[in-house]
Simulated scan of single mutants.
Amino acid sequence: MIGYIGEGESMGKAVIFDLDGTLLNTLDDLADSVNHTLNYFKYPERRKEEVRSFIGGGAKALIKKSLPENVTAEKYEEVLSYFQAYYKKNADKKTGLYPGVKKLVNKLSDENYSIGVVSAKGDIVVKELVESFLGDKVNETLGEKEGIKRKPAPDSILIMMDTLKCKPEETIYVGDSEVDVEAAANAGIKCASVTWGFRDKEDLEKINPLYIADNVQELYELIKG
């Protein structure tokens, strides 16, 4: 079932996707990298479901939530740096596209939609993963960069809209978390929340997103309006 308001309303010709939990299932590689890092610094490991709930605000938030509360700021920076270096080398060991995603992106591209990816993940890793799994079907990518505020600030989405030369009414953002819903609202565009990612459907419904799609076919129909 698709939960949305304004049936028949056109979504326009630009789709901006979140990456983790939306296009790619990155959970295993993230959890492995988090626990490798925690082990290295002799901190307790985290369960995969814990890591799943921590994803959505970028590496800084992920590591902050994964560490014990009494870690100093200096140690936090050391752990974060180690994690980022390790994950960059191991980001594609178990990661893969969610079922139907490649077909969806190919179809949207063939139908002349402009396609962007905006993620809180590091910019270089975002570009490498998107190129590896989706090739040239994605027009532009943007990950975390110094000087650009992370979601839920609208900055990265607005930059992508400017790059794709699309208007707010022509654009929809697709994500899997409360951060994505808030970021899209802050950017003044519609957001579709998918239920196959890192948040349960019940949790998404609590934040009352404008659109909810349970599978790729529903998402495609929603985008087409």
Rank of each mutant, 00 (worst) to 15 (best):
I2K: 09
G3H: 10
Y4R: 14
I5R: 11
G8D: 12
S10T: 10
A14N: 13
V15D: 03
V15C: 12
I16R: 10
L19N: 12
G21S: 13
N25W: 10
N25C: 11
T26E: 03
T26V: 06
D29V: 11
L30D: 02
A31K: 05
A31F: 05
S33A: 15
S33Q: 00
V34F: 10
H36R: 11
H36I: 10
T37P: 03
T37V: 00
L38F: 13
N39V: 01
N39G: 14
Y40W: 09
K42L: 08
K42Y: 06
Y43G: 00
E45M: 04
R47I: 01
E50W: 00
E50D: 05
V51N: 04
F54H: 07
G56A: 12
K60W: 01
L62P: 06
I63P: 03
K64M: 03
K65R: 15
E69H: 15
N70A: 11
A73V: 04
Y76M: 11
Y76E: 11
V79L: 05
S81G: 08
Y82Q: 10
Q84A: 07
A85D: 14
K89V: 00
N90S: 06
A91C: 13
K93L: 03
K94V: 01
K94H: 13
T95K: 01
T95N: 04
T95Y: 06
L97Y: 02
G100C: 12
K102T: 00
K103W: 08
V105Q: 04
K107V: 02
S109D: 02
D110W: 03
Y113Q: 04
Y113L: 13
I115Q: 03
I115R: 05
V117Y: 13
S119N: 08
A120W: 05
G122P: 06
D123L: 12
V125S: 08
V126D: 09
V126H: 11
K127C: 06
L129C: 08
S132H: 15
S132I: 08
N139W: 01
N139S: 14
T141E: 03
E144I: 02
G147K: 14
G147L: 13
I148C: 08
K149E: 06
A153F: 15
A153C: 04
P154Q: 07
D155M: 09
S156N: 12
S156I: 03
I157Q: 03
I159K: 13
M160Y: 07
D162Q: 14
L164W: 10
K167I: 07
V174T: 07
V174L: 01
V174R: 03
G175S: 08
G175H: 10
S177D: 01
S177N: 05
D180R: 05
V181P: 00
V181M: 08
A185F: 12
N186K: 15
I189D: 02
S193P: 01
W196Y: 13
W196S: 02
G197Y: 06
G197A: 12
F198R: 12
R199D: 02
D200E: 12
D200M: 10
D203L: 15
K206F: 07
K206M: 07
I207K: 10
P209F: 14
I212Y: 05
A213K: 02
D214E: 15
Q217R: 09
E218H: 05
E218N: 11
E218G: 13
Y220L: 14
I223M: 09
I223S: 13
K224F: 06
G225S: 14
